[in-house]
């Protein structure tokens, strides 16, 4: 089973994020592997291991795919340290400012060239928070879309994947033939930490760098130039005015109710 995992490098959740000229300032903050993508890597590794994973480009292997600026290599390195076999990074100055439409176009192109059975994604990137890229990749490739998976079962013999889709609308069991795009929710597993051996091994794993030219994608269709939505302005919200804080002296509950009454909330 050949599996790809789409991972994104994002600003650290704890870092203060700023907008610069309508796009997220990615230079000024620490960047990390999107933590929700670690669950996707873990799930892919478990599946391949259960099928006797046999390394780079083998019949049972995990390839990490990431689109982003050059330093995305750091996030990819972490994925390789966890155990992925190979990586493809798409980086190009013209990709800066890409929207989800462009991102899904580029990722779909890479996936198309790779002959994968399954593509795993996280459910959400912690910076964009759109939760749309996995569905959009499936739509572009005309692949089955198995998203928000709380569990995944694959049957290599019949080439089918079955998931439980866990959303606010309830729990659905969904089933599809390969190829499919699967996004996983964070309840699905406990991602492993890279071992020392894994970190050392990662240094020797193949990392292929692609740009728009090598993918045959017209630069005017992606990045800021090709974006179909524009940001007019972004302003920091005034910090919330400090609220009232009291220490419970035995009347805290009463004071709380008085506050709600005063604010006409009850």
């Amino acid at each position: 089973m050949k599996i790809a995992v789409c991972v994104k490098q994002v600003p650290d959740s704890w870092a203060e994020k700023k907008m610069m000229g309508g796009v997220l300032d990615r230079q000024g903050v620490d960047a990390v592997l999107n933590d929700l993508d670690e669950y996707a890597i873990e799930e892919a590794l478990r599946i391949v291991e259960a099928h006797g994973g046999n390394g780079e480009a083998g019949a049972n292997s995990v390839t990490v795919i990431s689109m982003g600026p050059e330093r995305t290599a750091d996030a990819v390195r972490k994925a390789l340290s966890m155990g992925a076999d190979a990586a493809i990074i798409v980086t190009d100055p013209a990709l800066a400012g890409s929207d989800a439409l462009a991102t899904s176009k580029v990722l779909a192109k890479v996936i198309e060239e790779g002959n994968f059975d399954l593509v795993f994604c996280g459910t959400e990137s912690t910076d964009a928070r759109m939760s749309v890229v996995p569905a959009m990749i499936a739509q572009r490739l005309t692949w089955a879309q198995l998203t928000f998976a709380g569990s995944v079962v694959v049957d290599a013999a019949t080439k089918t994947a079955t998931i439980t889709r866990v959303t606010e609308a309830g729990i659905d069991t969904m089933k599809a033939q390969f190829p499919a795009v699967i996004s996983v929710v964070e309840k699905i597993n406990e991602p492993r930490y890279p071992s020392f051996k894994g970190i050392m091994a990662a240094k020797k794993k193949p990392v292929e760098i692609k740009n728009l030219a090598s993918l045959g994608i017209e630069p005017s269709l992606v990045g800021t130039a090709g974006a179909w939505s524009v940001v007019d302005d972004a302003t920091p919200r005034p910090p919330k005015a400090a609220g009232i804080k009291i220490v419970d002296d035995g009347n805290g509950g009463k004071a709380l109710v008085d506050f709600l009454v005063e604010k006409k909330l009850i």
């Binding site: 009232i244 804080k245 009291i246 220490v247 419970d248 805290g252 509950g253 004071a255 709380l256 506050f259």
Partner: peptide
């Protein structure tokens, strides 16, 4: 918090 109580939720 617009309004915060430092205390035990089982009392407040």
């Amino acid at each position: 918090a617009d309004f915060g109580v430092v205390g035990d939720l089982f009392a407040v």
